[in-house]
Design a protein around this nucleic acid. Structure first.
Lengths: 228, 228
DNA sequence: TATTAAATTTAGATTAGCCTAAAATAAATT
DNA sequence: AATTTATTTTAGGCTAATCTAAATTTAATA
């Protein structure tokens, strides 16, 4: 039988975080394969570890049908995500790292184990609501308020909104956005779709017009403006 | 034979740091036993690891006669000590942790691997020269300037100076100093020694007088005032 | 529905970092 | 100088987290 895990190791923390994020697109249960892909390890390794996580009641697991988080697992995952995002704010606001640089360093900082440190950092930063990519920061009780955002690719022609998040965090993508002034807070209006490749013309800050591929607009999240 | 180590793991970093500090009192070579004691592991484990560290040219090692650091080992150790002390300054100055709380958290933060982060943190903190305990911070090239300090227990009767460091970092000791206003920057004068137990009377900030045990004064470092 | 393909699990092996017990060496004491 | 004690090393084992190869189960296709 599987050994019981007490204090979650760095490895366990990374599994839980990955499961949490993957549940977004696989709510019924995260597959062994997608977990292996995100963690860059072999599926066989994942199967074994998921068994241990289930024994320690971090996940609910049915053989061949994927894993979901228990309350305990969700709590643990959210604590790590809270730390990750707070450190990202620190790196961005205080140390002036660009938004494509913060993720990698925060991957390390998120594992620092001190609730007191996390809470003081939160205070020092002025209790930020979101990280530099617009992702919401869970509060100290693990409560997370997910803002109502839609992908820019879901906007109707003529719709206006503000860029408020992204669903792709690779440096390449973020640098692309930066270079095209598509940063958080930017006002955008969807002018016209091109059916054949799902690309679109976008007006930026009521001035400049750009043409963006579907690949780009589907990863930009906007907050729609209320209609008058 | 031993396997060669490329990127120093967390464990390796802790070995190198411990060796660096122990070389202060054992300059001829750090013994297996004292290393085992500081790292809270068994001597047999240390012997094995020292062999690996020697293969990777982090230490020079002669069986039964202890280990010393190579230039490579020293460089690596100083990089960790630099990070440790910079984070201590951050915790103390920015997050308002007391000087007895910073060490434990910095033990984790010192292993974050990003030269860019370290250098930006250094800048953010205003290039501090010392940590909250008065220990000097190596610069980005690993250069460390050790200030000329003497233990308070070495001062002659009548000598005056400023508390500028400690050689004992336990929370208990630091809290004791705090409670007695014996913090960094405090002016002290050695009034009189008591031969039978090596304790002494100390004047604090030209006002209050206290009686301190040898155990205490030997761990307080002062910068002597120039005589006029 | 039978077969093939893909995903998942099982079985057995490896590595880093630790352990205990026993053997070897160095240091201290008589 | 011989013996005892302390330190260090060697030898053999264990665990967490990984791997590869083979077996099993589910999903897709003919």
């Amino acid at each position: 039988m599987y050994k019981v895990i007490f204090m979650p190791s760095l490895t366990v923390e990374n599994y839980l975080k990955a499961i949490y994020h993957l549940l977004e697109s696989e709510p019924e249960g995260v597959s062994t394969n997608s977990l292996a892909a995100t963690l860059k390890i072999k599926p066989a390794t994942v199967t074994d570890m998921i068994g241990k996580l289930a024994s320690a009641r971090f996940v609910k697991y049915e053989k061949y049908y994927g894993a979901t988080l228990t309350d305990k697992g969700k709590r643990t995952a959210l604590a790590i995500i809270r730390k990750h995002r707070l450190w990202e704010v620190f790196l961005s606001e205080k140390l002036k790292f660009s938004w494509d640089e913060v993720h990698e360093i925060a991957e390390q900082l998120e594992h620092i184990d001190s609730i007191e440190l996390t809470d003081r950092l939160d205070m020092f930063l002025g209790y930020p609501k979101t990280d530099p990519h617009g992702d919401p920061i869970p509060d100290k009780n693990g409560k997370i308020t997910v803002p109502e955002l839609i992908p820019l690719s879901f906007a109707k022609e003529g719709a206006e909104g503000m860029i408020s998040g992204v669903t792709e965090h690779s440096p390449a993508f973020l640098q692309y956005l930066e270079k095209n002034n598509l940063t958080l807070g930017t006002e955008v209006m969807l002018l016209e779709y091109y059916e054949y490749d799902l690309s679109a013309d976008i007006r930026i800050n009521k001035k400049r017009q750009v043409h963006l591929s579907h690949e780009v607009i589907k990863h930009i999240l906007i907050k729609l403006h209320d209609k008058h």
